[in-house]
Amino acid sequence: MNQILKFKLDGVECMGYKDQYITNAAAENGFYIPTLCNIPGVKPRGACRICNVRVNGKLMTACTTPLANGMVIECQTEELKDLRKAIIELMLTEGNHFCPSCEKSGNCELQALAYRFNITVPRFKYQFPERDIEASHPKLIKDHNRCILCKRCIRVIKDEQGRNIFAFGKRGNRITINIDTELANDISDENARMAYEICPVGAILLRENAFREPIGKRKFDHVPIGIEMERFHK
């Protein structure tokens, strides 16, 4: 059995296992550390930086940092909350996020985090970048306006032979996540739906699936994101 480790999270004595990442250990101890790029069970990337916590005083991404014995972790300090809020605001202004016309609205994790952080208006200027929509694939639509480059789709969606259907294109601030046209033509229904569901925003859309759930019945209409994990912090 895995070695049990002790750590302190916001002053509360907690326990976890060796080789467990901080986000997972925190969740098991009743703390929600917000993330956008992380999916339990998939190798973490630390792409979105929203899970930033202070480990023994140093800023670390909780999703990629393995637990160590005696760690003192700060998560819900005013500084960290504002840092996370700022990252969400940056994402909202960096892309083109038109919530009223987005098919993912109500089920979008970026939007849900913005609700959770009480964002009514971002502190940054809207950039309105020029981005494309790839609508030529038979089952999926890739909307680059909304993509936050979390890499969830790259890490999770593979075909039967283990080939990546999504991949990075270009570099630097022009980077995009593209669909492999040939593989996307043969993508299974199951994989297409999974791609739609794991996308935290509305950047990967399933065709003929828009606006199925009425307002009031969507995932985050009534319940804030992460509330099911919280026992100590609201």
């Binding site: 038109f98 016309s101 208006v121 809207y126 309105f128």
Partner: peptide, 18 residues
Amino acid sequence: SVGECAIMGGLQAIRNTI
């Protein structure tokens, strides 16, 4: 500011990328 249009330009602002 009341509503998304006042706050972020709203759907009209889709033209900002063109």
